[in-house]
Design a protein around this nucleic acid. Sequence first.
DNA 1: TCGCTCAAGACCTCCGACGTATCAGGTCAT
DNA 2: ATGACCTGATACGTCGGAGGTCTTGAGCGA
Lengths: 223, 223
Amino acid sequence: MAVTDEAIEKIKGMIVSGALRPGDRLPKESELAADLGLSRNSLREAVRALSLIRILDVRQGDGTYVTSLDPQLLLEALSFVVDFHRDDTVLEFLAVRRILEPAATAMAALRISEQQLDALTAQLDKLGDAPSVEDLVACDLEFHRGIVQSSGNSVLCSLLDGLSGPTTRARIWRGLTQEDAVSRTLREHRAILAALRDRDAEAARSWATVHIASVEQWLRSTL
Amino acid sequence: MAVTDEAIEKIKGMIVSGALRPGDRLPKESELAADLGLSRNSLREAVRALSLIRILDVRQGDGTYVTSLDPQLLLEALSFVVDFHRDDTVLEFLAVRRILEPAATAMAALRISEQQLDALTAQLDKLGDAPSVEDLVACDLEFHRGIVQSSGNSVLCSLLDGLSGPTTRARIWRGLTQEDAVSRTLREHRAILAALRDRDAEAARSWATVHIASVEQWLRSTL
DNA sequence: TCGCTCAAGACCTCCGACGTATCAGGTCAT
DNA sequence: ATGACCTGATACGTCGGAGGTCTTGAGCGA
């Protein structure tokens, strides 16, 4: 195994074992390189790799720190990976969303605050009846994110965030110009919100399923 | 933005845009570095980072290639990330599994082959009635993986694989020594398999839910 | 006390050299 | 002619050192 890979494993080991804890600062590059028995150049490759997936946070002029290791932060790397997928696997990602999103929406129905409900309502009101496709996409993303956050599970939230990432969603919506799709989306958003306000988890779940299934159906007929 | 980060973005761009396709070979380090306008050392940091998340495959003495970009491969990096999570977030990961696994099991009920059913049966038979905890853990992993693969969704499969990764599962099972837990697990596996054989998606879903919920409940009472 | 200057510390980038692994082509024995 | 073996070219792996840039905080003056 290459020295850089060893270094990655060792740093990972230090974090998993608790020798390095979230927020801790690593020894400076030259010291750490000496400790691990490799050159500064090779160590930098290891650090850079761990930095890409948000394990380490490198601040020039300051030092290198272990991130908070929050699920949210680590799964952020997921969206980076999802960006690489080609169109022919979009349906599979969408199928996973179709499983997760209704469940998250149902969970949210039991936990969402009045204040959050009001915010979602205001958001929909602000969008109006005939928004541009761009506005609708942005709003859709925000709407679902708000709901999923109310599920209270940050892993679930980050996962869905990654799966629904800008790229995937943009690709799907770019061609979604059929007139009734816009109004249908607006109606479905209203219905989901109403179900949440009623604390009706099953209704919320069903509307979320319908909502995603309609996108899935449209996409399937298009590809 | 640092030159290395720019290089990462550029390489990503080349792949996403289709200029580089799965399996393609990249120009050699020195050339690519010159093309992108940075030193070989800095480029190597970018390549190493992309290699960690399985976007690139570097072979010494040969060259650097774009991987297949299969969801399976890319989500493999997920397990690396999951390893970093501390015990207090295990419940959130488990909650996500509780959503995905029953759905995957239900999907499998409609698609699994006779041959795969026989293989799962043989696996359970081989384990016997009173296996060691280690054997049970290994078998459990294999059993669920086999089922999820039959769901036909490779994204779903990889995601669950990552979430159920060795570390998380090992941590959970390490303390699972209560006698009835072992026999209960065996019974539940048999029940899931029976539901699959009956092509009864709802029964399969329910048994999978029960199966995971029991782990969740035990874990919740322990932490 | 507040704000500015400046030097120390740490990461950023680059260069050039050498080590090591892989592959292709040629050589030689069978 | 075929196969194993050798060898050179090629490309990645590792290293040490030299400047450069950014952040931080101590020290100074208003």
